[in-house]
Design a protein around this nucleic acid. Sequence first.
DNA 1: ATTTCTCTGGACAAGACTGTCCAGGATCGC
DNA 2: GCGATCCTGGACAGTCTTGTCCAGAGAAAT
Lengths: 223, 223
Amino acid sequence: MARRAAPVLHRDNPDKEPLSGHVKVTPEDWLNVARDLLVSEGVAGVKVLAIGERLGVSRSSFYWYFKSRKHLLEALLDDWEARNTAPILDHCDLPAANISWAVCNFFRCFVDPDLFDASLDFAVREWSRRDGKVRNRIDAADAQRLAAVTAMYERHGYSAYEAEARARILYFMQCGYHALEVREPMQARTARLEGYLLGFTGVHPDPEAVAAARAFAQGKMPR
Amino acid sequence: MARRAAPVLHRDNPDKEPLSGHVKVTPEDWLNVARDLLVSEGVAGVKVLAIGERLGVSRSSFYWYFKSRKHLLEALLDDWEARNTAPILDHCDLPAANISWAVCNFFRCFVDPDLFDASLDFAVREWSRRDGKVRNRIDAADAQRLAAVTAMYERHGYSAYEAEARARILYFMQCGYHALEVREPMQARTARLEGYLLGFTGVHPDPEAVAAARAFAQGKMPR
DNA sequence: ATTTCTCTGGACAAGACTGTCCAGGATCGC
DNA sequence: GCGATCCTGGACAGTCTTGTCCAGAGAAAT
């Protein structure tokens, strides 16, 4: 009896469009729902049955696309890394007239959900507490991001020592904000940036920081 | 057949010493191990069987002390609230010569695990993402803590607006630090405080901030 | 010593989840 | 059309979990 080949992660023809006119799912469908569940329920909530139900598909169909739940989780981790690493590094490298605008650039990542999925980031962070491999990967990501912010401060004239301290304040504060899942309207959030910039640039009142923060809060983007 | 009364949360004589010379557990034992598991494994890891095994006791014994797993979780939440709320508020209210020392006082909570159990705090925070009731309680705790830090800045001469901004920077940064579970020796941690204080007080170099941070890093306590 | 109360262990039922096996419908290449 | 291949549904086994029931050991009360 000719049995099928061992299940693979992706179909043999991944570039092909989904087969027309019939209810079928793709590995991406499984992955997307899995990501949703990871964010909303935690890694323990990423259950094969739950995903299948939401897709309207039998549970056993899953094992055609993924070898096991463990392989799905690995794919999920790769997916996260591909999404949430680059945007922060890119925005730190953006040219800016002064440090206040540079900080605004950094903030922009965390304000725009298309640029950086904070919920996903924290779901992975939570997951990392229970899995050493995940922990290592997110540690590497944090190190990269901190290095990028530090370099940003250094480009604007801060010493290595002070650049690192301010980078940590900035990045940790932003992570803390998301860790606490502060619930406030976007307007309140951007309005607070002025205060933050004052806190960061320190010399109060700093006309440059005030101008940058007010403009940013009104939707103007740097440069 | 005379059956026992319905299981209660605590024994009828809670003030009495544990029965001598015999292996018995107390509700506190169950609670302590449950707290450990909450921190290390997350709320999903708080399993009756796992706790019982670590106590060297049968699983069914649990149901003598607690009505159900749900009741254990409620007790766990009360326990957290009793531990981690007061210390921060107290340390924010401590008298300090200047704002730098006041910030040092605040940092002291987060440096000393006896004063504030950050791991427990974040375990509860993670738990709150999946449970609305937990979420409400931790939101209230965050609001109280932020208000205390804000009041601290105001007592040292900052305007209400700037006090709130700096309080948020300070508290969020600290939470972010713990959310990322930065792994570094205590020495490196306190040594960085100087940089942080510079960042917070802003006017650089600020002799007061430098003096406070250096003294604090060397183990000297405020006042 | 006897009774009563407190607490534990073992057996049981029920439900949730993972992973396997296989029949067979749907679709594609020819 | 027709065979080969892709994909799904249903049944099954095995494991882990919570919660119940009850016999009975051990300490305390009398």
